[in-house]
Computed example of a mutant assay.
Amino acid sequence: MSITVGTNDHTLSDHLKAFIQTPDALVVGIIGEGSSRELTALWESPFENDTPGSMFSKQGGLIQAGALEGIGIEGGRTSKSTLNTTQVWSGTTPHNFNLVLEFYAISDAYNQVQAALIELEKVIAPEMNELTPGGRIPPQVTLNAGRQIIYPECVITNVSRQLDGPIGRDGYPLRGSVTIQLQTLTTVNQSDIPATFG
């Protein structure tokens, strides 16, 4: 059974907290200002350069510029049509989360701040063998943000933390802020999105 680390302040609503389940611990942090959720659809116009004039680009350019008006060809015309600008879906990225998590010590600076920061850095690092292949890649985590955004399979792609801040007598930080970037393991289907909202 995993331990709980981080700031699980019972005076605050769970809707203000993020719960990140790693293989070794449940990390609880307060969701900070600037946290976001992003989904990007990739659209492109593959026909943009496929025009009758593309085979004769110089002649097409001369027509558009009006240089051939003297031989009865009117300028200011284009060989492109609206078909050339049609956007075609080429994929959707996995959901991206940029979470700012705040940790602070209520009674135990190590477990409520330091251990949470350690655990988040652990899950972005691999465990490689010294000489032979076969080590382990960074593990997946489960994200539960505010008890309303739930994803069972995520990977952490970036962890950034501040090094300044108050330090207790035992040498552990009394407060810490960390920015983590997570992605769902795969692109999420349209039909699955409502279930991610708690």
Results as ranks from 00 to 15, higher is better:
1 M>Q: 03
1 M>S: 10
1 M>V: 11
3 I>Y: 08
3 I>V: 15
4 T>A: 07
4 T>E: 06
5 V>T: 03
7 T>D: 05
7 T>H: 04
10 H>I: 12
13 S>Q: 07
14 D>I: 11
16 L>W: 10
19 F>V: 05
20 I>C: 02
23 P>G: 03
24 D>P: 02
27 V>W: 00
29 G>F: 01
31 I>A: 03
32 G>R: 02
33 E>L: 13
34 G>F: 02
36 S>K: 07
39 L>S: 13
41 A>P: 10
43 W>A: 15
43 W>G: 15
44 E>S: 15
45 S>D: 04
47 F>R: 07
47 F>D: 01
48 E>T: 05
48 E>N: 00
48 E>G: 00
51 T>I: 02
52 P>A: 04
52 P>H: 01
55 M>H: 09
56 F>T: 09
56 F>Y: 01
58 K>I: 13
60 G>L: 02
60 G>E: 08
62 L>A: 11
64 Q>N: 13
67 A>Y: 11
67 A>G: 14
68 L>P: 03
69 E>G: 15
70 G>I: 07
70 G>Y: 07
74 E>A: 14
79 S>C: 08
80 K>V: 01
80 K>C: 03
82 T>Y: 08
82 T>H: 12
83 L>R: 14
87 Q>S: 13
87 Q>I: 04
94 P>R: 04
97 F>S: 02
98 N>Q: 11
98 N>M: 07
101 L>K: 01
102 E>T: 10
103 F>H: 03
105 A>V: 06
106 I>M: 14
106 I>S: 12
107 S>H: 15
108 D>S: 13
112 Q>M: 09
113 V>S: 02
114 Q>G: 02
116 A>W: 00
117 L>H: 00
118 I>M: 06
120 L>C: 04
120 L>I: 05
124 I>D: 04
124 I>G: 06
128 M>N: 14
129 N>F: 10
129 N>I: 00
130 E>W: 03
131 L>C: 11
132 T>M: 09
133 P>E: 09
133 P>S: 11
134 G>L: 05
135 G>C: 06
135 G>M: 07
136 R>Y: 13
136 R>C: 09
137 I>H: 06
137 I>K: 13
139 P>A: 08
140 Q>V: 09
142 T>P: 00
143 L>T: 00
146 G>Y: 01
146 G>H: 02
146 G>L: 03
147 R>A: 07
148 Q>A: 14
150 I>F: 10
152 P>N: 12
153 E>R: 13
153 E>H: 13
153 E>L: 13
157 T>W: 10
158 N>F: 06
160 S>T: 11
162 Q>F: 06
164 D>L: 05
165 G>V: 01
166 P>D: 11
168 G>M: 03
170 D>F: 06
171 G>E: 04
172 Y>N: 13
172 Y>M: 11
176 G>S: 10
189 N>K: 12
190 Q>V: 10
193 I>A: 13
193 I>G: 11
194 P>W: 08
194 P>C: 11
197 F>T: 13
